[in-house]
Design a protein around this nucleic acid. Structure first.
Length: 291
DNA sequence: AACGCGTGGCC
DNA sequence: TGGCCAAGCGT
């Protein structure tokens, strides 16, 4: 049976080059896979590894996390970044406990309904935890397909219908093969077909790569604008939350005021954290992680 | 449909 | 050095 022009080579490469990641173990639970996927959103594997280990040791099941206040999740999140993900994971745990009998749902639609679970994460959990046949389209896969199939260096900024259709058209028929393909092509993007320095000499589909065949033409689309960080509200939010994480007790306002000079920006950032549910303003004027 | 949202490592 | 990038999501 012919699946897609790349699948057998990529899957074979995966067999010998896949990283030994703990959430890929045979006995990894659906919950542990969901936790890994949320942590991996915009965060490199090397930083997720220790955080995932600690998290799973403390909260091996959704109900274990659901039994604790959300602030404990935010504190445990430490400096992984995008701390609303900790809130999302806690809300996931509560929903799974209350509405799914304590078991992570296996259906794509049910997963998609969980907070912080979007199209990619739902497909990844349905596929990797439950063996479902779903197209995996993350930043790694998008880059591999842009190069190998479309012949361009980088995919568009936002996922297009054409990319989704392409990924679905490449999905092997057999579910187990589809799962393997998804993990394998993602790994290829992470290890070989990287954004800055692709190692075409180590690529199992170099001889079928449209971008390489065209002589590696440079990116010709609109300039890819990066995000600033220094001086932004995000930096202020990060500092404010760091103070709260470090303190076992609620903190007084002056402790928060000390982290940023500009009072307008400081207040705006604090208000936003409260609005996001990441900070709890107490009646006595102090501030705490959410209860 | 752009934009906001953390953090750290790399060349 | 500083911009770029890292298994996205929600609005």
């Amino acid at each position: 049976m012919i699946d897609n022009p790349y699948s057998s080579a990529v899957i074979a490469w995966f067999g010998t080059h896949a990283r030994d990641l703990p959430w890929r173990a045979d006995d990894a639970s659906p919950w542990s896979i969901l936790v890994s996927e949320i942590m991996l959103q915009q965060t490199p594997v090397v930083r997720v590894l220790p955080a995932w280990e600690a998290w799973m040791r403390r909260w091996p099941t959704p109900s274990a996390l659901a039994a604790e206040p959300a602030g404990e999740a935010v504190r445990m999140w430490n400096r992984l970044g995008y701390p609303r993900r900790a809130l999302n994971l806690h809300a996931c745990a509560r929903e799974i406990t209350e509405r799914h009998g304590g078991e992570v749902p296996s259906e794509h639609a049910a997963l998609l309904a969980l907070p912080g679970v979007g199209s990619y994460t739902a497909a990844a959990v349905a596929s990797f935890a439950f063996g479902g046949r779903h197209a995996i389209l993350d930043t790694n896969v998008r880059r591999v397909l842009a190069r190998a199939h479309t012949g361009i260096e980088y995919p568009p900024k936002a996922t297009t219908r054409a990319e989704t259709r392409l990924a679905e058209s490449l999905l092997p028929e057999d579910p187990a093969t589809a799962v393997r393909w998804g993990a394998a092509v993602m790994e290829l993007g992470a290890l070989v077909c990287t954004a800055r320095s692709p190692e075409c000499s180590a690529c199992p589909i170099a001889d079928r790569c449209a971008w390489r065949a065209a002589g590696h033409p440079a990116h010709s689309g609109p300039p890819r604008v990066g995000q600033k960080y220094a001086g932004t509200d995000r930096q202020v939010r990060g500092r404010l939350l760091a103070v709260l994480r470090a303190s076992p007790a609620p903190v007084h306002k002056p402790a928060l005021d000390a982290v940023w000079d500009d009072p307008v920006q400081r207040e705006r950032a604090l208000d936003a954290l409260v609005a996001d549910g990441l900070v709890d303003p107490l009646d006595d004027g102090r501030y705490a992680l959410p209860g």
